[in-house]
Deep mutational scan, measured.
Amino acid sequence: KEMRNAYWEIALLPNLNNQQKRAFIRSLYDDPSQSANLLAEAKKLNDAQA
């Protein structure tokens, strides 16, 4: 469930391009235990690109 939530949050971040989203989501599938960390990194990048 945590992975699914992280997937959708990443997919809906407005300032990431599709390539960036795909990279984060690929990492999510590679290591679901890192969901919270990956989401935090994606949000950080999203904010930096705002």
Score class of each variant (00 low, 15 high):
residue 5 N to T: 14
residue 19 Q to G: 12
residue 43 K to T: 02
residue 32 P to Y: 08
residue 7 Y to E: 15
residue 45 L to M: 10
residue 31 D to C: 04
residue 41 E to F: 11
residue 30 D to C: 07
residue 7 Y to P: 02
residue 16 L to D: 00
residue 50 A to R: 02
residue 48 A to H: 11
residue 40 A to V: 11
residue 40 A to T: 12
residue 49 Q to P: 04
residue 36 A to F: 10
residue 49 Q to F: 08
residue 20 Q to S: 03
residue 7 Y to K: 08
residue 41 E to K: 12
residue 28 L to C: 01
residue 30 D to P: 02
residue 14 P to C: 03
residue 41 E to S: 08
residue 24 F to G: 00
residue 22 R to P: 01
residue 36 A to V: 11
residue 50 A to P: 07
residue 16 L to V: 03
residue 40 A to I: 14
residue 47 D to M: 10
residue 45 L to N: 02
residue 22 R to D: 11
residue 25 I to Y: 09
residue 8 W to F: 12
residue 31 D to I: 06
residue 11 A to Q: 12
residue 5 N to H: 11
residue 46 N to A: 05
residue 25 I to P: 00
residue 19 Q to M: 07
residue 29 Y to F: 11
residue 31 D to E: 09
residue 14 P to W: 05
residue 21 K to N: 01
residue 49 Q to C: 04
residue 28 L to I: 06
residue 18 N to L: 14
residue 11 A to H: 15
residue 40 A to E: 11
residue 23 A to K: 15
residue 42 A to K: 00
residue 15 N to Y: 15
residue 14 P to L: 06
residue 33 S to G: 12
residue 44 K to C: 05
residue 1 K to N: 15
residue 37 N to G: 06
residue 2 E to R: 01
residue 12 L to I: 09
residue 43 K to W: 09
residue 20 Q to K: 02
residue 39 L to Q: 03
residue 40 A to Y: 10
residue 41 E to W: 11
residue 7 Y to I: 15
residue 1 K to V: 10
residue 35 S to L: 08
residue 34 Q to E: 07
residue 22 R to V: 09
residue 20 Q to I: 05
residue 33 S to Q: 12
residue 30 D to E: 14
residue 8 W to H: 09
residue 35 S to K: 15
residue 49 Q to Y: 13
residue 3 M to H: 08
residue 11 A to I: 15
residue 8 W to A: 07
residue 26 R to S: 07
residue 35 S to N: 04
residue 36 A to P: 10
residue 34 Q to K: 10
residue 19 Q to F: 11
residue 18 N to P: 10
residue 36 A to I: 13
residue 13 L to D: 01
residue 5 N to Q: 11
residue 15 N to A: 14
residue 3 M to C: 07
residue 2 E to D: 14
residue 47 D to I: 15
residue 18 N to Q: 13
residue 34 Q to Y: 06
residue 23 A to D: 15
residue 44 K to I: 09
residue 27 S to D: 11
residue 36 A to N: 07
residue 7 Y to W: 07
residue 12 L to M: 10
residue 35 S to W: 07
residue 34 Q to W: 06
residue 22 R to K: 11
residue 4 R to E: 15
residue 10 I to R: 00
residue 38 L to H: 04
residue 35 S to E: 06
residue 45 L to S: 03
residue 1 K to H: 15
residue 31 D to F: 13
residue 44 K to M: 13
residue 5 N to V: 09
residue 18 N to V: 08
residue 49 Q to E: 08
residue 33 S to L: 09
residue 30 D to L: 15
residue 32 P to G: 04
residue 10 I to D: 00
residue 23 A to N: 10
residue 2 E to H: 07
residue 22 R to L: 13
residue 35 S to T: 06
residue 42 A to G: 02
residue 4 R to G: 10
residue 28 L to F: 03
residue 34 Q to L: 11
residue 23 A to M: 14
residue 29 Y to S: 06
residue 9 E to G: 06
residue 1 K to L: 13
residue 11 A to E: 06
residue 9 E to T: 06
residue 21 K to P: 00
residue 39 L to K: 05
residue 23 A to V: 06
residue 32 P to F: 12
residue 9 E to Q: 12
residue 10 I to F: 03
residue 33 S to T: 09
residue 35 S to M: 07
residue 30 D to S: 13
residue 30 D to F: 14
residue 30 D to K: 06
residue 29 Y to V: 08
residue 23 A to F: 08
residue 33 S to P: 04
residue 20 Q to L: 03
residue 24 F to H: 01
residue 40 A to Q: 15
residue 44 K to N: 05
residue 30 D to Y: 10
residue 15 N to T: 04
residue 49 Q to V: 11
residue 35 S to G: 10
residue 48 A to Y: 13
residue 25 I to Q: 09
residue 8 W to T: 06
